[in-house]
Amino acid sequence: KYSDMIVAAIQAEKNRAGSSRQSIQKYIKSHYKVGENADSQIKLSIKRLVTTGVLKQTKGVGASGSFRLA
């Protein structure tokens, strides 16, 4: 599940300011076997996790910027 992968990526990075979408994508692609549409799936999952309150956006708008666990 992409949401689990995103949470794992943010936990692994341990950046106080949060993790960027690009760094999350890079982590997921190197640690998991994902399909061609992974980028758009990650983007959608990040937006969903922010609206449900699992992630907090520290910089930027939408799916860009930095995110950390709430």
Rank of each mutant, 00 (worst) to 15 (best):
K1H: 11
K1W: 10
K1Q: 09
K1E: 09
K1P: 09
K1C: 15
Y2D: 01
Y2T: 03
Y2K: 01
S3N: 10
S3P: 15
S3Y: 12
S3M: 12
S3A: 14
S3T: 13
S3R: 09
D4A: 10
D4Q: 11
D4Y: 11
D4F: 14
D4V: 10
M5W: 12
M5V: 02
M5A: 04
M5R: 02
M5H: 02
M5N: 00
I6L: 03
I6N: 00
I6C: 03
I6G: 00
I6T: 00
I6D: 00
I6Y: 01
I6W: 02
V7C: 10
V7I: 14
V7W: 03
A8Y: 04
A8P: 00
A8N: 05
A8V: 04
A9P: 01
A9V: 02
I10T: 02
I10S: 06
Q11A: 10
Q11E: 09
Q11P: 00
Q11M: 14
Q11F: 08
A12T: 04
A12R: 04
A12M: 05
E13F: 08
E13Y: 07
E13P: 03
K14A: 14
K14G: 15
K14H: 11
K14E: 09
K14C: 15
K14Y: 08
K14R: 10
N15T: 06
N15K: 11
N15L: 05
N15D: 07
R16V: 12
R16H: 12
R16F: 10
R16L: 12
A17T: 09
A17Q: 13
A17D: 12
A17C: 15
G18F: 04
G18N: 03
G18V: 03
G18Q: 02
G18R: 01
G18C: 15
S19N: 02
S19A: 11
S19K: 04
S19H: 05
S20D: 06
R21A: 15
R21S: 11
R21D: 07
R21W: 15
R21M: 15
Q22S: 12
Q22L: 12
S23H: 05
S23V: 05
S23Q: 11
S23T: 07
S23D: 11
S23Y: 15
S23F: 13
I24V: 03
I24T: 00
I24C: 04
I24N: 00
Q25E: 13
Q25N: 08
Q25H: 08
K26N: 13
K26T: 09
K26V: 08
Y27Q: 01
Y27E: 00
Y27H: 04
Y27P: 01
Y27R: 00
I28E: 15
I28L: 04
K29D: 04
K29P: 01
K29V: 07
K29I: 08
K29F: 08
K29R: 08
S30C: 11
S30F: 07
S30D: 12
S30L: 09
S30W: 05
S30H: 09
S30G: 06
S30R: 07
S30E: 13
H31K: 04
H31A: 03
H31Q: 03
H31E: 03
H31P: 00
H31S: 03
H31R: 05
Y32K: 00
Y32D: 00
Y32E: 02
Y32I: 03
Y32T: 05
Y32R: 01
K33C: 09
K33D: 13
K33V: 11
K33M: 10
K33L: 09
K33G: 07
V34K: 02
V34F: 03
V34P: 03
V34R: 01
G35F: 04
G35H: 06
G35K: 05
G35R: 04
G35T: 05
G35W: 04
G35Q: 05
E36Q: 12
E36C: 10
N37Q: 07
N37K: 08
N37T: 06
N37G: 07
N37W: 07
N37L: 06
A38S: 06
A38F: 11
A38P: 04
A38V: 09
A38R: 02
A38E: 06
A38Q: 04
A38M: 07
D39K: 07
D39P: 05
D39S: 07
D39T: 08
D39W: 09
S40I: 13
S40Y: 14
S40G: 06
S40K: 15
S40R: 14
Q41K: 14
Q41F: 09
Q41G: 05
Q41L: 14
Q41S: 06
Q41Y: 12
I42L: 04
I42D: 01
I42F: 04
I42Y: 02
I42V: 04
K43F: 14
K43G: 10
K43E: 15
K43T: 15
K43R: 12
K43V: 13
K43M: 13
K43Q: 13
L44Y: 08
L44Q: 09
L44K: 14
L44R: 15
S45A: 15
S45P: 00
S45Q: 13
S45V: 14
S45F: 09
I46S: 00
I46Q: 01
I46W: 03
I46Y: 01
I46D: 01
I46C: 02
I46F: 03
I46V: 03
K47S: 09
K47N: 09
K47I: 13
R48E: 12
R48L: 13
R48P: 00
R48Y: 14
R48V: 11
R48M: 13
R48A: 11
L49I: 01
L49H: 00
L49M: 12
L49G: 00
L49F: 02
V50H: 02
V50E: 03
V50Q: 03
V50P: 01
V50S: 03
T51S: 12
T51C: 13
T52Q: 14
T52V: 09
T52M: 14
G53S: 02
G53A: 03
G53F: 04
G53I: 04
V54M: 05
V54L: 06
L55E: 00
L55M: 02
L55F: 00
L55C: 02
K56F: 11
K56S: 08
K56I: 15
K56P: 00
K56L: 15
K56W: 11
K56T: 13
K56V: 15
Q57I: 12
Q57F: 15
T58V: 13
K59F: 08
K59G: 13
K59A: 09
K59T: 08
K59N: 08
K59W: 10
K59R: 10
G60S: 07
G60I: 07
G60M: 06
G60W: 07
G60R: 08
G60F: 05
V61D: 13
V61A: 13
V61T: 09
V61Q: 11
V61I: 11
V61K: 12
G62K: 06
G62H: 07
G62I: 05
G62Y: 06
G62L: 06
G62S: 06
A63K: 12
A63Q: 10
A63F: 10
A63G: 14
A63R: 10
S64G: 13
S64P: 09
S64K: 11
G65M: 14
G65S: 14
G65T: 14
G65D: 14
S66K: 14
S66N: 12
S66H: 13
S66P: 08
F67E: 03
F67T: 02
F67A: 02
F67R: 01
R68G: 05
R68V: 14
R68A: 12
R68I: 14
L69C: 06
L69F: 05
L69P: 03
L69K: 02
L69G: 02
L69E: 03
A70N: 09
A70C: 08
A70F: 09
A70G: 06
A70I: 08
